[in-house]
Design a protein around this nucleic acid. Structure first.
Ligand code: MN
Ligand code: MN
Ligand code: ZN
Ligand code: ZN
Lengths: 132, 132
DNA sequence: TTCTAGTTTATAACGATTCTAAAAAAGTGT
DNA sequence: ACACTTTTTTAGAATCGTTATAAACTAGAA
């Protein structure tokens, strides 16, 4: 299995559950956005297999910490994650409540002209809200 | 009271509670960021007066709908609001979990080179995450 | 195999937010 | 002032996403 090494190198034991979640998250043509609930449902359908919700939470947070997932800063009752961990931005369709990727190359260079003493910039993320 | 008209013009009855919340939110030198809980505490201290938490929620949402407050897109267990309703951006200090304003004039012009069919851009918000 | 630390699991707990329904207040007309 | 309607406030309950718990299980090492 191609994820065993990846997990081992991260200090995460390659358990059956983690490998299955890897499949669902990373064995895809395209990257995607999801909530924990989305993911739990996807696992059930796609793998015909129940993984405890607590494990889904634990795994998603572990993967996020290792940089295999990103959390998307948006206001929602649920937290959104992204399997696209490259630097990029998002459209948020307010009506459909859907996220759409906006690549860095699709946004002109962003100049931050203010500095905060003793702090470094870790990331710059743009959220473009859409209406009809 | 200077907020009576403002509320009436918005179709909101100028109740004692709403006027008091207006004072706390808008009778300040500087704009600020807050959570519902922050606000409830501020009311208690500043006005020596209890307002039901449900009313604080209702009022904040009513004010947001009327455009007197903005919600800040950020991932936190609590929702952050902003009394600065002008178009502007934010730094987020990951360590101190604090928001800092970043004015539009302090960010170079942002070009969005991608369009979504049938949708208009409502807002463009930048979140700059800070680390030490 | 035996041991140990890490992981999974069902379930409880937590906490921010929303809902409920009854009481209070605001607005309107007389 | 009064009667009447509509909006608002309120305490408390309910909801629901997320986190904590603690017991059972498992991976990896010796
Ligand atoms: Mn989380
Ligand atoms: Mn809200
Ligand atoms: Zn994305
Ligand atoms: Zn602000």
């Amino acid at each position: 299995m191609k994820y065993i090494e990846k997990l081992r190198n991260s200090g995460l034991r390659p358990t059956k559950q983690r490998l299955q979640i890897c499949e669902v998250l990373f064995d895809t043509e395209k990257t995607f956005h999801f909530t924990i609930n989305d993911l739990a449902n996807k696992i059930k359908k796609q793998l015909n297999n129940k993984i405890s919700l607590a494990t889904v939470y634990n795994t998603v947070h572990a993967f996020e910490k290792k940089g295999y997932l990103k959390q998307i800063p948006i206001n929602s009752n649920q937290t959104y994650f992204d399997t696209n961990v490259s630097d990029h931005h998002h459209f948020y369709d307010l009506k459909d409540e859907k996220l759409i990727d906006l690549e860095t190359s699709e946004v002109g260079p962003i100049k931050i002209l203010k500095q905060i003493d003793g702090k470094k910039i870790k990331s710059v993320e743009v959220l473009v809200k859409l209406e009809d």
